[in-house]
């Protein structure tokens, strides 16, 4: 699926600096989600994937200085008025978080929670409740959930409630930040099936933030891989999985334990991601990369397309060597 001319989300050259850090926590991020498209943003803790997704709602950490643009249906959230941002958050963009229990008030009924956004925006109670029942049905729950408290339903059901709540305002963009990480594998599959079905039915663009590369590849049209605040690689999901062009992506794929693999040792990536208190001269992954040379430590690589596949970009000086030599071995 190719992005449509007016993407629901277009992030360009986004830079975000936090107080007390030596380098930008987001360093020139470019990312696009087309209408009705599912895009996965993959990275490890601290890579900046959640920060990136939150800028679509105009949510910045305290003291953050941002540059670049984050356009939602053409409008930049970084320069938006507070009133417009509020409207954006109740309508155009919605978010589903990792832990539904942390996102819900335990003392209020689910029905209250589902309808409060619409009621605050001026919708009548009956109409808001009717919409809530419709969406509960769409996520596979019946209207009896309206009268229940969060503690009375399971985690998987609560995450369905969160998805229903996110769709109440009929958003064009849904941000899902590790929405299945707290669930077991079977519940995860069910929530994913639901998100896929709803996206098709409502035509919502989906930005799916996850640390799980296999999950990302299985559900999305396109994948972005982030490392230390930069996009390391982006490609259609199948292409990325079959032929990664960035050593970090290749190493992540190789270090993922799979039930179908041979048992025994994994090809672990040595070391840790760079600390925010240090500056980075060249490529952020150079310190852990088996292919790194002097060039990598001097100059940060630009994301360049694969000549044969223009949609497959990798920010690596040695992507040719990676492709020629295969997956880097345990370093």
């Amino acid at each position: 699926m190719t992005p449509t001319p007016v993407p629901v989300l277009q992030v360009q050259d986004l830079r975000l600096t936090l107080p007390g850090t030596a380098r930008p926590v987001l360093d020139g991020v470019d990312l696009t989600v087309g209408a009705g498209e599912t895009v996965a943003l993959v990275g490890e803790s601290g890579s900046g994937k959640s920060l990136t997704s939150r800028t679509a709602l105009g949510l910045l950490p305290p003291g953050a200085i941002a540059s670049g643009t984050v356009r939602v249906e053409g409008e930049d959230t970084l320069t938006m008025s507070a009133a417009r941002l509020r409207a954006l958050r109740t309508g155009d963009v919605a978010m589903v978080f990792q832990d539904p229990r942390a996102a819900l008030n335990p003392l209020r009924r689910i029905g209250d929670f589902l309808t409060e956004g619409l009621r605050a925006a001026g919708t009548k109670q009956e109409a808001a409740t009717a919409r809530a029942v419709e969406l509960l049905d769409a996520v596979g729950l019946d209207a009896s959930a309206l009268g229940k408290y969060p503690s009375q339903v399971s985690g998987g059901m609560l995450q369905r409630v969160m998805i229903a709540a996110a769709l109440m305002g009929d958003p064009s963009l849904l941000l899902a930040d590790e929405p299945t990480t707290a669930l077991d594998v079977v519940s995860q599959a069910e929530v994913i099936a639901l998100l896929t079905k709803l996206r098709e039915r409502f035509g919502t663009g989906l930005l799916f933030v996850t640390h799980d590369l296999d999950l990302a590849a299985a559900i999305s049209d396109r994948v972005y891989v982030m490392y230390a605040g930069r996009i390391a690689e982006t490609a259609p999901a199948e292409t990325l999985f079959a032929g990664p062009r960035h050593p970090y992506t290749a190493a992540l794929l190789a270090s993922t334990p799979r039930p179908t693999a041979q048992g025994g040792r994994l090809a672990a990536i040595a070391g840790q991601p760079p600390d925010l208190r240090t500056t980075i001269e060249g490529c952020a992954f150079a310190e852990r990369c088996p292919l790194a040379t002097g060039l990598c430590r001097e100059r940060a690589p630009e994301p360049l397309p694969d000549p044969a596949r223009p949609g497959h970009l990798a920010a690596c000086h040695h992507t040719d060597r990676l492709v020629a030599e295969g997956t880097p071995a345990d370093a």
């Binding site: 594998v185 079977v186 079905k197 296999d214 299985a218 799979r258």
Partner: peptide
């Protein structure tokens, strides 16, 4: 079998898993 099928992999069909459960 359901647990194994639930693990994301290429060609994964989450809709089928929901039915299997």
């Amino acid at each position: 079998r359901l647990l194994l099928d639930s693990v994301p992999h290429p060609g994964w069909d989450p809709g089928r898993i929901a039915e299997a459960r």
